[in-house]
């Protein structure tokens, strides 16, 4: 894992690049459009700052490169080997989709078998706890980009990574906001 300061540097570098691209491409923007562009470039910058080694960043890049406009930004931020990274991320995404589908099928069949086999049982405390954990895991999977196709172990790892980079992102953004505020007041 990168140290937080170097992660911030990397993120800021890429983000500024992305913002420049945004600025060059379109002259007039409403606030919402601007917000969207900033968010997109920040996401992609964050993902590429993690060098696309984690699956959440890959999912982010793949999602961003679906859209035509955002694809341009992604290309610019990722730089030289953008095609390679993009291809890999999209491939992994499609792979994840397949995994997801097979999991669904498995679950379905399992459910059917279960209904046949097991009569209604006494609800135990342990089973309740298990269900609680399962529910929360699913919520977490929805929160972390690309989390739908992770198992528990990798989910924890990815969440760790994601939290670190989100923190870095918030820090950098706050700094920039502070800077602009400072600038405004002058």
């Amino acid at each position: 894992m990168l140290s937080p300061s170097s992660l911030k540097q990397e993120f800021l570098k890429k983000w500024v690049m992305g913002l420049q691209v945004c600025n060059n491409s379109e002259k007039e923007m409403s606030i919402m459009e601007r917000k969207k562009a900033i968010k997109l470039s920040a996401d992609v910058a964050m993902a590429s700052a993690r060098t696309a080694s984690t699956s959440w960043s890959r999912a982010l890049i793949a999602n961003a490169s679906k859209n035509n406009e955002s694809n341009f930004i992604v290309d610019n931020i990722l730089g030289n080997d953008s095609q390679k990274i993009k291809k890999a991320s999209i491939l992994s995404l499609s792979h994840n989709k397949i995994v997801l589908r097979s999991k669904k099928i498995l679950k379905k069949s399992h459910r059917i078998r279960r209904v046949k086999k097991i009569a209604p049982q006494v609800v135990l405390a342990s089973s309740i706890a298990k269900r609680l954990v399962k529910k929360r895991t699913q919520v977490l999977k929805r929160l972390v980009p690309g989390g739908e196709s992770m198992d528990d172990f990798s989910l924890i790892e990815e969440t760790l990574d994601y939290i670190v980079s989100l923190r870095a992102q918030v820090d950098v953004m706050r700094c920039l906001a502070y800077a602009t505020e400072h600038l405004n007041s002058k």
């Binding site: 601007r34 920040a42 977490l140 929160l143 939290i163 992102q169 953004m173 906001a177 602009t180």
Partner: peptide, 26 residues
């Protein structure tokens, strides 16, 4: 963890908006 991630994501969102306003102002 879920709460924390959600709050972080919201923070990012809010910073985004804040920034977009600021930059528009600059």
């Amino acid at each position: 963890i879920i709460n924390y991630v959600q709050s972080l994501q919201r923070q990012v969102e809010v910073e985004n908006i804040f920034l977009s306003m600021k930059l528009a102002a600059v």
